[in-house]
Write a protein that binds this DNA or RNA. Structure first.
Length: 204
DNA sequence: TAGGCCATCTGGTCCT
DNA sequence: AGGACCAGATGGCCTA
């Protein structure tokens, strides 16, 4: 499935792989939805973490001492609240960025999993839950195939009627495979896979 | 149009 | 303090 176009504002950071998305109220202060904003604009909007902090630490022979900067007599509390707000916003943006990357990595792993699962040309891309269920049942089917092969029965590659194959959707089912049923849909599909899937044959 | 799927944001929690 | 992980909320896109 191709990435869907989103209407939220996308911000590019210095890292080409990273971008930020702002909520509607945030993006409204920039340009129209979908506008690209430079890192300079981003930092001017939210500030950087370096701006936060009102004390300086020194390391000396007697240990670490902290020298507090003189607070301005006026606006002191207002400024610190603003700085704290800026810092929270900065942390939130960083956390959002990490979370986005984390989910991208998770999706990459799901794509990798889809790539090793058998599929047919006319099949639509599996959803996330279908991929996990398919993988679960596929592993079960492989295990069963090996077990039967070890028992020397070898009856799987031929002689399975089409009516026994079951729906491919059955592999996406959330229900556990029926390990005791000799004619389970999973087994039928496994036979179908054995006969038609080159990648699966390579795997075997 | 309702429902499914998805990406993203967000706040909370746990861990280092 | 900051990062990883999680679950809930939200809104967009797509399809029956």
């Amino acid at each position: 499935m191709s990435p869907k176009t989103r209407c939220s504002l996308v911000l590019f950071s210095s890292d080409a792989e990273q971008y930020y998305t702002l909520s509607d109220d945030e993006s409204s202060s920039f340009h129209s939805p979908g506008a690209i904003v430079s890192p300079e604009q981003l930092s001017s909007r939210f500030g950087s973490g370096d701006e936060v902090g009102d004390s300086v630490s020194h390391r000396g022979a007697l240990g670490t001492t902290t020298v507090r900067r003189k607070k301005p007599k006026s606006r002191g509390r207002v400024k610190s609240e603003a700085a704290a707000s800026k810092q929270r916003r900065s942390r939130r943006i960083k956390a959002n960025d990490r979370e986005r990357n984390r989910m991208h990595h998770l999706n990459d792993a799901l794509d990798a999993l889809r790539a090793v699962l058998p599929s047919f040309p006319d099949d639509a891309k599996l959803t996330k839950i279908e991929t996990l269920r398919f993988a679960h049942n596929y592993i079960w089917a492989l295990t069963e195939t090996l077990r039967l092969a070890e028992q020397g029965r070898g009856q799987c590659a031929s002689g399975i009627a089409a009516s026994e194959l079951g729906s491919p959707q059955s592999l996406y089912s959330s229900s556990s495979p029926d390990c005791d049923s000799p004619q389970s849909p999973q087994r039928g599909l496994m036979c179908r896979l054995l006969e038609s899937s080159a990648s699966f044959s390579d795997f075997i």
